[in-house]
Design a protein around this nucleic acid. Structure first.
Length: 448
RNA sequence: GGAGGGGUGACCGAGUGGUCGAAGGUGCUUGAUUGGAAAUCAAGUGUACUGAAAGGUACCGGGGGUUCGAAUCCCUUCCCCUCCGCCA
């Protein structure tokens, strides 16, 4: 993490709106920029292969279209032709048809290869995004709140939750497998409390609450950019060809797939709550202790659709970030905001801020900031894939912009909540804002 | 799960093999009229791909088939509606 650069690092936005749009024409004309994005985002994609495939595709398309034009012409002529001329024309029509049928499989095949490659093309990171590989290259923007120094031996969340009987660790692992858990008693109540606090905060700030489906078709996964590259991460329900979502972002964005908004209808701001399911493939052995990384969790997610206007998207982005920060403030959890580097942002994200909460028990008890929220701008990446458009004042259409940010994810958020607010005797003093959601209880006491 | 009905442009809605990218209406845009507006009249008004352009191609829920030719015929699939069954 590079420090102290903060906002000074932010460069003025230098792309025109159109330049962000990754259609094949743009890719052809800006191959170098795309190549850089592929490299910096560490995407496994051979751009030259895409470009030659595109060339192949267009050549074949031209050929086919010529044949089709002739086919249409002949069909047209036959309807007007005399009895004598008909047989000849029908013969030619048949010939053209056969020629078409011979070439069409090649087109289908090329198109398929082309589409598969296109789905792997990343969006271009915005200019202010630092180039880097891993977490250590993220740039800290600011720290908020004071990290507490304990005058006693602080416990980590596993100890605390065990002490309070908040989790059944063992039972679920037997019948549901690794990374399973059951929230019990005050643990379960706390999850309901923090999610409800988050929901109320967002509703108060004008977002519309949504409880969406969590089983979705492949189209939704691809449309939001999680497939094909993140396929391994999703649970599949093969009998019905459905997938369990890893975030409500998927159904919330898909809610408007294939729609064309009137510009006046935007922005649309949603707060969705859902269970989230993640296989955590590739994270074997990582964060296996406790509730930091689990297969199933509850998340309140914010999703915004807005017109494709950079200034507007900026405003929305920082508003989403502000919403998350407001929730952390209510929970009185110290946190920091960082700008994720190119290697850490997703295929579709053009910029991502991470909000990392202070977790005293991490890093072998020395404490660490760890991600609890991530705030992303995706430009028109998802809108392209999901076919979500906006009709502008002059009657033309363009792809909408989408943004999203976590509001709260539990049980992960319970880690900083419990660890930061613990007392020497193992009791936990709840932040004031949470008390009403816990039916007036101000201090949680360990089970006797 | 069983039986039936339906999916056409921003919206309503016509269209059962060629002259249909699609009548008519609504809406919208522009112009005329008006002091201004309403009303009226006239013209225009889908999307995507491809091409330097002219143009061409594709799209009537999705996919496939029949045919020289498909919105129209056939198969299949998804979604919606009605009735029956089951059910939190």
């Amino acid at each position: 993490m590079r420090r102290g650069e903060g906002h000074a690092h932010l460069a003025p936005f230098s792309f025109k709106v159109a330049a962000l749009m990754l259609d094949i024409a743009f890719i052809r004309q800006n191959a170098d920029a795309v190549r850089a994005a592929i490299k910096n985002k560490r995407v496994d994609l051979d751009l030259d292969l895409l470009l030659t495939t595109d060339k192949e595709r267009r050549t074949l398309l031209g050929e086919l279209e010529q044949k089709r034009a002739r086919k249409n012409e002949i069909a047209q002529l036959i309807s007007k032709a005399s009895k004598e001329d008909r047989p000849t024309l029908i013969e030619e029509g048949k010939a053209v048809k056969v020629a078409l049928e011979q070439r069409e499989p090649a087109m289908t095949e090329v198109q398929k290869r082309f589409d598969e490659l296109m789905l792997k093309v990343p969006s271009l990171p915005r200019p202010e995004v630092p180039i880097g590989v891993g977490e250590e290259d993220n740039v800290e923007i600011r720290k908020v709140g004071t990290v507490r120094t304990f005058d006693f031996k602080a416990k980590d969340h596993v100890e605390l939750m065990t002490l309070h009987g908040m989790v059944n660790w063992e039972g679920p692992r037997k019948f549901a497998g690794g990374r399973s858990y059951a929230l019990m008693g005050t643990g379960a109540l706390l999850e309901l409390a923090v999610t409800r606090l988050a929901v109320d905060t967002l509703v108060e700030r004008g977002l519309t609450m949504v409880i969406p489906p969590v089983m979705v078709k492949e189209r939704a996964m691809t449309g939001t950019g999680f497939f094909p590259l993140g396929r391994e991460e999703a649970y599949a329900i093969t009998a019905d060809e459905l997938f369990l979502v890893g975030t409500a972002e998927v159904p919330l964005v898909s809610l408007h797939a294939d729609e064309t908004f009137e510009a006046s209808a935007l922005p649309i701001r949603y707060a969705g709550i859902s269970n989230c399911f993640r296989r955590e493939a590739g994270a074997y052995g990582k964060d296996t202790k406790g509730l930091y990384r689990v297969h199933q969790f509850t998340k309140v997610e914010q999703v915004v659709f807005c017109v494709p206007d950079e200034e507007m998207a900026e405003k929305e982005h920082y508003q989403l970030l502000g919403n998350a920060e407001a929730i952390l403030a209510k929970l009185e959890i110290p946190y920091r905001v960082a700008l994720a580097c190119t290697g850490e942002i997703g295929l579709g994200q053009t910029r991502k801020h991470e909000v990392e909460s202070w977790m005293p028990g991490r890093n072998e008890g020395k404490g660490a900031y760890n991600e609890t929220h991530s705030c992303s701008t995706l430009g028109d990446f998802q809108a392209r894939r999901s076919n979500i458009r906006v009709r502008t004042a002059d009657g033309t259409t363009a792809y909408a912009y989408t943004l999203n940010n976590t509001a709260i994810a539990s049980p992960r958020i319970l880690i900083p909540l419990l660890e930061n607010h613990q007392n020497a005797d193992g009791s936990i003093t709840l932040p004031k804002a949470l008390v009403p959601y816990m039916n007036g209880v101000t201090v949680l006491r360990p089970k006797a």
